[in-house]
Amino acid sequence: MNPHVHSTLVVQLQADGASRCPVLAHLSYDAADPFAVTAVFSHDGRVLTRWRLDREMLGEGLRRSVGVGDVRFSPVTNGMWAELRMEFLGDTHEDGSRHHAVVYAWAPAVSAFLRSTRAVVPPGEEEIGVDDFLAEILARG
């Protein structure tokens, strides 16, 4: 079985109070890093940002509000659509405020992606190479 899962979704970005605009979200999962999902957001071929997300938290966000700090997820019903609301807080501006963006994704598409990741590494069966992890940290000094 392929240890990688990839999916590209059209999502809606709402940044700093502006109206929503479509961007691409490239979701990827690698069994070698079984707790994480990488989300790369792009527009017109340019990477806007990259986030490393907790796979379990992402799934929980489809059912209830989760997260504190820089990343928060919550389910949203928008008319007939079920969406996942992903809120991201970024670097601090000179005035002390922070970059703020909200991304809305079609919840069934995120759910399908997560099902594919669970087929690769079921919840509870995640393993990390602690020895390799420690060796990497020690090598960095």
Rank of each mutant, 00 (worst) to 15 (best):
A36M: 05
A36W: 00
V37W: 04
T38K: 02
A39V: 09
A39D: 07
A39C: 11
A39M: 10
F41I: 06
S42E: 03
D44R: 09
D44L: 08
G45R: 07
R46D: 14
R46Y: 12
L48S: 09
L48F: 05
L48A: 02
T49N: 14
R50H: 07
R50W: 13
W51V: 03
W51C: 02
R52H: 06
R52I: 10
D54L: 13
D54Y: 10
R55Y: 00
R55M: 03
R55A: 02
R55S: 05
E56M: 01
M57W: 03
M57A: 12
L58R: 02
L58N: 02
L58G: 01
E60N: 11
L62M: 12
S65F: 03
S65G: 12
S65P: 06
V68H: 09
V68S: 15
D70L: 07
S74V: 02
V76D: 09
T77Y: 10
N78P: 02
N78I: 13
G79V: 12
W81V: 15
W81M: 15
E83Q: 14
L84V: 04
L84D: 01
R85N: 06
R85W: 03
R85M: 04
M86P: 06
M86G: 06
F88C: 04
F88K: 05
F88W: 07
G90Q: 11
G90H: 05
G90Y: 09
